[in-house]
Amino acid sequence: MNIFRLAGDMTHLASVLVLLLKIHTIKSCAGVSLKTQELYALVFATRYLDIFTDFISVYNTVMKLIFLGSSFSIVWYIRRHKIVRRSYDKEQDTFRHYFLVLPCLLLALLIHEKFTVKELLWTFSIYLEAVAILPQLVLLQRTRNIDNLTGQYVFLLGAYRSLYILNWIYRYFTERHFVHWITWIAGLVQTLLYADFFYYYFESWKNNVKLQLPA
């Protein structure tokens, strides 16, 4: 475990916990895309199937349980909580996420490492994670104003992905370990999606103005 990997996991953990805390504390999910949260819950559900079969480490298992628990809790809060659900902006959060799930499913059936159910679902989760943030980015552009917690959420997710890329580079040079090219390409595409957001996030931070994404 290298520092980039640990920092990446901690940043990822912070992103989901910050979001869950926001929703739990202020009983509002304004600005949060339910579609993105459902996609992340699906990503974790299809990726962490090995939690029952392969034991890697206590850390690995605990983190998987936290990610599963927090992502499903967030979906539950937005869908079911009698107060939170009122602040969900369903008119704006209209990204048809089936248009993301189906292509990822097909791509996993076409391009994978091994043709086993577990491997296909794992590959599907890698592709889906790469695009899961799209409904949230679209919602941020539609609502134009970004309340700082949602901005922080996207920022932390982007930081987690960037740190994972540093982790892969570090492992390549130190352990001669290379991640599978599917993981590498999907991870790169996912991180590039955040690059645009980062630019506007830093611009607004530098000029100390409210973050406005171009329409």
Partner: peptide, 10 residues
């Protein structure tokens, strides 16, 4: 599964 196969990342 050999080492590289084990998916040790989250």
């Amino acid at each position: 599964a050999d080492e590289s196969d084990v998916k040790d990342e989250l």
